[in-house]
Each structure stands twice: as C-alpha cells, then as structure tokens.
C-alpha cells in the first residue's frame, strides 16, 4: 500500500480513537443520562416474552427520565448466561444496563452460570409472572384440591407440560409434586409456552404449571381454565382464580425479568433510574400495554427487587438440591 494511504489510515484511526475517547471519558455522574446512549443488554432472542416486556419497559421508562436514550441489544447466546455475565462485567458508569431473568436464581445451582444476583444493583422488575395451574375446560376437576385427588387416583399418568427439564416450569411442577405428594408424568416442550398451549388445546396433555400470559387467548375462548395461581395476590386479569396461598399452600413461584445495573454503579445514577421506574405505574398506558398481552405488570423497584432475587435464589437452591435430575 502506498505511503499516502498508510498516512491516511493512521490519521483516520487516530480520529476514531479520539472520538471514542471523548465520548466515553467525559461522562459525569451529575450529567447522567445525557452523555450518551444507555445500552440495555437483553439476554434473550428478539420477539420472545422477555424481549417484548423489556422493550415495552424501556419505551415507557424513556418518558419518565429526562434525556435518556435506551438502546436495547439482544445477546441470547449461551442460553442467556453470556448476556447476563456481560452486564455484570460492564462499566459501572450507568451507560450499560441489562435484563436478568429468573434463570439467574436457578442456573448457579445447576452449574450453568458463574454469577448470581449479588453481582447486580437492581432497578426494577416489570414482570414477575406466577406459575398457574392450567387445565382443559372440560376436565373433571375444578379446583386445585380436586386436581390433586384426581392425580392420586391416576398416579404417574397425569401428563404435565413444562418448558424444558430443569427449567422454571418443570421446577414449579416438581415443587407441586412435593407439596401435594403426587406424581406426574413430565412432558417437556422446549420451544416454549405456545407449544404447551397448543398441546393443551389439542388434549395431548392434561395440565401445565406455567405463566398464564401465553394461554390468555385459549382461556378467554373457553377452551382452558385456570385452577390456581402461585402468586402473593390475586391476578387482576383473573380475579376469580384463587392463589395457592389463600388455599392454604404457601407456594410462590414466579418468572421475573428485572432491569439491573452492574454492582458498583454510583447511587445517584441508580436513584435517577429507580425514581423514574417508580413512576411507571402512574401511567395507565404502561399498565395497559402489559395487560393487553395477558401479562400482569408489577412494579418491584430497587431494594424490593433485590430482595425478591435473593429470596428466589435461596428457594431454588433448596428446591434444586432435593430434585434429582438424573
């Protein structure tokens, strides 16, 4: 290559480096978030449940915080682990955030993930979908107790769909088995809850314990019914469905996704973000966005979110150590 070209190449490289340097060096905490784009790493593929929820969250959060520009990036490699690890190791200047999902509470116990909730500072969790017991509408049982009785009569025959062995809905089903002393036939549908919905609608399986949002259409159409839900409080969308808690069984299993920042991000930045997040629930459009998709939004902010992640981490630790995944 000619000398002129090499000179030009060096000049432009220096220019690029200078620009990069300027952009990243000058950010101050007080200026946050005006010094650039805030990248949010979503550890799932575009279009999936977590992705849509995250993008919705960011869309509305943008309106609550002045001057912020969120740029969502999908990093589904490694089953989501790589994305979460990248967020944990990112710069603590607040310009890199990420989503983490309930797998963060489970995978470390299964040797699938090198980090835990302790690597993050939480901002908010927009969704925490509970496991719901969903069965065919014309099934001969109408309550959780009737279902348990049926299971006892047909031990080992009742087919319960889940999203993959070792994944959250399987764990929920195993927890159910433990609590009620029954025995299911677990049938994994690794491609996702819509396959489970199709299988239930086609009567290929008997029941599932899963996040009810993927089944909303079928329930509304009267093909499926929900017998109970494993959450703290009743669901707004299904006010007639009892929680397991009020039926006397202390079971809370939820698939959450949370917006987090790397552990040592400055308090002022976290405060700005958490404040903005706390105001989200005042926006009816935000709530409707989720409700329309059959998802019940939650607004677990800051410390509460950290507590939830901690509790679930400990719960799954206990549960998974007793589960014998052959």
């Amino acid at each position: 290559m000619s000398k002129k070209y090499i000179a030009l190449l060096i000049a432009v490289s220096v220019l690029i480096l200078a620009v990069y340097g300027y952009v990243s060096a000058g950010s101050k905490v007080e200026n946050y978030p005006n010094d650039g784009d805030v990248t949010v790493i979503i550890p799932k593929s575009p279009g999936g449940g977590t992705d849509i929820a995250a993008r919705g969250l960011l869309q509305f959060l943008r309106e609550e915080i002045d001057g912020v520009n969120f740029v969502a990036t999908n990093k589904p490699e490694g089953g989501g682990v790589t994305g979460m690890v990248t967020t944990a190791n990112a710069n603590t200047d607040g310009y890199t955030l990420g989503m983490v999902t309930v797998e963060l509470g489970m995978y470390p116990h299964q040797d699938k993930c090198p980090i835990t909730y302790e690597e993050f500072a939480t901002i908010c969790a927009p969704i925490a979908s509970p496991a719901a017991l969903i069965v065919a509408a014309d099934a001969p049982y109408n309550t959780v107790d009737e279902f348990v009785a049926y299971c006892n009569e047909h031990s080992g025959e009742v087919q319960v769909g889940n999203s993959g062995t070792g994944a959250i809905w399987h764990v929920a089903a195993v927890a159910f088995e433990k609590e009620f002393g029954v025995s299911f036939r677990h049938v994994p549908y690794p491609s996702g809850t819509s396959d489970i919905a199709a299988a239930l609608a086609g009567k290929h399986i008997d029941a599932t314990l899963a996040d009810p949002s993927g089944f909303k259409s079928q329930v509304s159409a009267g093909n499926l019914k929900i017998l109970g839900v494993m959450s703290d409080t009743k669901m707004q969308l299904y006010p007639d469905v009892p929680t397991f808690k009020e039926l006397g069984y202390d079971m809370i299993i939820r698939a959450w996704a949370a917006l987090v920042a790397p552990k040592d991000t400055p308090e002022e930045i976290l405060h700005k973000l958490r404040e903005g997040a706390a105001r989200l629930f005042e926006n009816q459009e935000y709530i409707d966005y989720f409700l329309n998709q059959g998802i019940e939004p939650v607004n677990i902010v800051g410390e509460d979110c950290y507590q939830m992640m901690k509790e679930d981490h400990e719960m799954y630790g206990e549960l998974l150590s007793t589960m014998d995944l052959e």
Binding site: E77, G78, G79, V81, T82, V85, Q110, D111, K112, C113, P114, S163, G164, T165, G166, A167, H170, P188, P190, L325, E326
Partner: peptide, 16 residues
Amino acid sequence: SMSGKIRFTGGSSYLL
C-alpha cells in the same frame, strides 16, 4: 432441554 443436562460444551458458556 429434555433432561436438563449440558452436552458437549466443554465448559464453555458460549456453547451453552
């Protein structure tokens, strides 16, 4: 996803 086991990744998280 049928058994929850990790196959042939040699410990790499990319291959998970």
